[in-house]
């Protein structure tokens, strides 16, 4: 019995460990940081610095010539100026409508498309590719094309409406305070619904076929199968998709800027176009920065949920 080792311990409590020093751990991993360094450096220059500078500027009155050594500290005045301004309410409402409506309809169309395309049929790949083209082309191109489609005199949509008897004269989509925002939202949906589609199609692939079969055997009809089996499996993807769409819509600039510049009479002005106008139109960088800081805060809230939705499962992967 000499070969039985002396260290047999069963379910013994481990020896009290020495808490590893953070600096020692950093030192032990010093080579690992070299891999991340270039990326971090670029991000630091182009992100950390601007974030810091934006926050700083938001407390200053700035000269219009961008000679920032002449700036004057004004405390929270820029923030008050924004919150008290007449346009802030209107712009915020526009932003909310723009973001929520674009996201909602893009997601809905995307979901419908994903479900319709999930079944295998001839030409499915081509169909998916065609539907994705608007997402790939530049928003600048999309804006010009739709601007032409919406043209008040020669636009094809107005002409079609007349042909189909929906209207007796060409419609002035973009120069009307009531129709401008919905018209722009349609462009935005056109541009991005296929993003939702592709995400949800990927999500659909994770729905176990066996579960659907089981539900069918259990007597569930198509709608019940969707609602009780498919949809719960899409929850995670849907969360991420909706969040990404929200962020993208909240941040979109090109479509309203090129198509209307925020007009007419600010009817299509959203936060981002407003910030751009304040900064580069009226040269009030301090106020624009304060606006940006408010936007940061909203984005960080969304970002928190984004990261949370993304990290589900990441840490469980063994490295």
């Amino acid at each position: 019995m000499s070969s039985v080792t002396g260290q047999v311990a069963y379910a013994g409590a481990p020896v009290a460990p020495k808490r590893a020093n953070v600096f020692k751990r950093i030192f032990n991993h010093r080579n690992d940081y070299l891999y991340v360094l270039p990326a971090l450096l670029v991000m630091l220059i182009v992100i950390a610095y601007p974030v810091y500078y934006t926050i700083e500027l938001s407390f200053f009155k700035t000269p219009p010539n961008l000679q920032m050594k002449d700036k004057i500290f004004v405390g929270l005045d820029n923030y008050w100026a924004i919150l008290k301004s007449d346009s802030f309410r209107e712009v915020t409402i526009n932003t909310a409508i723009w973001t929520v409506a674009s996201t909602f309809f893009a997601f809905l169309l995307g979901l419908g498309a994903a479900l319709s395309l999930h079944r295998e049929f001839a030409g499915r790949g081509v169909m998916r590719a065609v539907l994705l083209i608007p997402y790939v082309v530049s928003a600048v191109a999309a804006s010009y094309v739709w601007k032409w489609l919406y043209h008040s005199d020669f636009g094809v949509i107005g002409a079609l409406a007349v042909q189909l008897g929906l209207s007796d004269k060409p419609i002035n989509f973009l120069d009307n305070v009531h129709t401008v925002l919905p018209s722009l939202i349609v462009v935005n949906i056109w541009k991005e619904f296929s993003f939702a589609m592709i995400m949800l199609m990927a999500g659909l692939q994770t729905v176990p076929e066996q579960l659907l079969r089981a539900a069918q055997v259990d007597g569930a009809n198509a709608w019940q199968r969707f609602w009780h089996v498919t949809f719960p499996h899409l929850k995670g993807v849907s969360m991420v998709t909706v969040l990404l769409l929200m962020v993208a819509n909240f941040n979109s600039f090109i479509i309203p800027w090129i198509m209307t510049g925020g007009g007419p009479a600010g009817a299509s002005d959203i936060w981002i176009t407003q910030i751009y106008t304040i900064a580069f139109g009226r040269q009030r960088y301090g106020v624009a920065s304060a606006y940006a800081v408010i936007l940061f805060i909203v984005m960080m809230t969304l970002g928190y949920f984004y990261v949370k939705a993304l990290t589900k499962g990441d840490e469980s992967r063994a490295g």
Binding site: V4, A11, P14
Partner: peptide, 23 residues
């Protein structure tokens, strides 16, 4: 092995005949 500890190290016959503990 169990729980990070080496429980017994011996020939299979001896481990089978004389297990050192319940595990």
């Amino acid at each position: 092995m169990n729980g990070g500890f080496l429980q017994q190290y011996d020939s299979p016959a001896n481990v089978f005949a004389n297990p050192v503990n319940m595990f």
